[in-house]
């Protein structure tokens, strides 16, 4: 079974006037910044890593589909990185 590691990331987000939260860009640990080109879907989906009721944002980043998770209670974003 594939294992994942939870990596918390810094995210710049937008609060649209119609409500909700939209990630704009993601700042990686090494200082690189990745623009979120599009948010394809948003919904409550359990993560593979430990997290209580996160919101999953399926995003297009660098032309590829990536999943960003928001833990609303702690107002914290994370991604899942496959680990060996």
């Amino acid at each position: 079974m594939q294992h994942y590691e939870k990596v918390c990331v810094e995210v710049l987000a937008r609060f649209p006037k119609e409500g909700g939260i939209r990630p704009v860009s993601l700042l990686w640990e090494d200082g690189r910044q990745f623009i979120v080109e599009r948010v394809k879907s948003v919904g409550r989906v359990p993560a593979h890593v430990g997290s209580l009721l996160p919101i999953r944002y399926t995003c297009i980043i660098g032309g590829r589909e990536k999943e960003l998770y928001l833990e609303r209670e702690r107002m914290r974003w994370f991604v899942e990185v496959p680990s060996s």
Binding site: P46, H48, V49, G50, L52
Partner: peptide
Amino acid sequence: SVEMVKNPA
């Protein structure tokens, strides 16, 4: 079950 969601291990 909630504990296992919090920590899948």
